[in-house]
Simulated scan of single mutants.
Amino acid sequence: MIRSEAVEAAFRRVPRHLFVPAGTSIEEAYSADAAPPTKKDVEGQIISSVSAPFLQAQMLEQAQLHPGASVLEIGSGGYNAALIAEVVGPAGRVVSVDIDPDVTAWAREALDASGYGNRVETVCADAEHGLAGSSVFDAIIVTVGAWDIPPAWLTQLDHDGTLSVPLRMNGVTRSIAFARQADHLASTSAEVCGFVPMQGLGERRERVLQLPDGHGRYVRLRFDTGAPEDPNLLDGVLADMKVRVWSGVEFPNGVSFADLHLWNACFLPGFCKVAADEGTELAQDRKSWFPFGCVFIDSFAYLAVRPAMDGAGIEFGAGAYGPNGEQAAAAMVEQIQAWDRRARRGPVPTFGFWPDGSDRSHIPDHVALLEKHHGLVTVSWPRASRP
């Protein structure tokens, strides 16, 4: 993920082990994909962590920082702010804001201990409304999962600045670098990522449906949007016979198909994420499916896979439960095939954000539309057409 000398130099200089919890091994502290948690909620869910180095490098490169730049980081931890300080240099300005006083206290302590305390300003506040009295920034880097882009961020972003944000789109997240284009934002790059969700006014809670298996265990369906109007129709659905429908769409091992999930998030009605307790039928067959699905009236389907290409790849399909399981599976398979025909081999998708008040008459007809509180997100696969 490191593509520039400036970002490489920052990673070589900043001592990451001083920013992780006590007792973290050196191997974990410097592992490229480890994200040591720094705080959990009362239910044991991680609400703050030191992001994995590969994600931090990815977002630093996306932001295209330069010496002397002013940068606002939304979501503190200390380490990433220190990396930013190295990239922008002594003439730059770095402000790191977090809603949680425990997190900002942790960040200040680690920054002081590592010698960056006088190069990073830490602020405890809800960034939904921006920073009172602060000027505009050349870049805003959001290090928590955001469901929306509030107006304050655009107000405090310089006209030629870059906003890098892990944006959640119907449950699927991409780290997107946005630049202004007339009255809206257009993506300059996008990468697969995962972040703990934002807290405060910008928080967006998923709706969770728990489907009991009759033995004290559950399959959980998580909806970002589009939850069923009558979830009671799914009562007892796991008792129905499971069906599977295969798409004929094959994919070689070792090649990412993450854009299939994004396609389904945009175009598959009733799209949701799926999780299964240990001991459920789904959990016992965990290697044959991925945690994405859809609801169709009184039934639900999930993304299934089976070996293909003489063991060198997989075939996509759908498993389903419920009286209308075959229709639910068919709906998912239809979108798998649509993605394969219209988007799989084309250019990567691009993204736009059209804030409230922008001229939406310029939005192309072929894009996916995702409504937010403060605007509209568009997702476009070049040469693809809406299913």
Rank of each mutant, 00 (worst) to 15 (best):
H362D: 09
G23P: 02
I176F: 13
Q284K: 15
S48C: 05
E5A: 15
D365K: 15
P347N: 11
P323F: 12
V142T: 02
M332T: 07
G23V: 11
W289I: 09
A329M: 10
S4R: 12
D213K: 08
S175C: 15
G325K: 03
I297M: 12
D259M: 08
I46G: 07
G171M: 10
D298F: 13
S164I: 11
A29Q: 03
L376W: 07
A265Y: 00
L65S: 02
L303P: 12
R222C: 07
F267N: 02
P197T: 12
V333T: 06
V42S: 14
V245M: 09
E121C: 02
F195C: 11
S299F: 04
N253S: 13
Q62K: 10
H215P: 00
I141F: 07
N253W: 11
V136D: 08
V103K: 04
I2N: 05
P36E: 07
R344S: 01
T378V: 01
Q56C: 14
F11K: 09
G325F: 05
G202M: 09
L260N: 07
T188Y: 05
F223S: 01
A32G: 03
F351C: 05
L303F: 08
I2Q: 01
T104F: 06
A177W: 06
T378C: 07
V348P: 10
V333N: 01
V97S: 02
D365C: 13
R93M: 01
D240V: 05
M169S: 08
D356Y: 06
V208D: 00
N324V: 03
L234T: 02
V50F: 08
R180K: 12
F271D: 01
L282Y: 01
I297T: 14
S4D: 08
R244W: 04
G133M: 12
G322K: 10
S134R: 15
L260C: 08
H159W: 13
D102G: 10
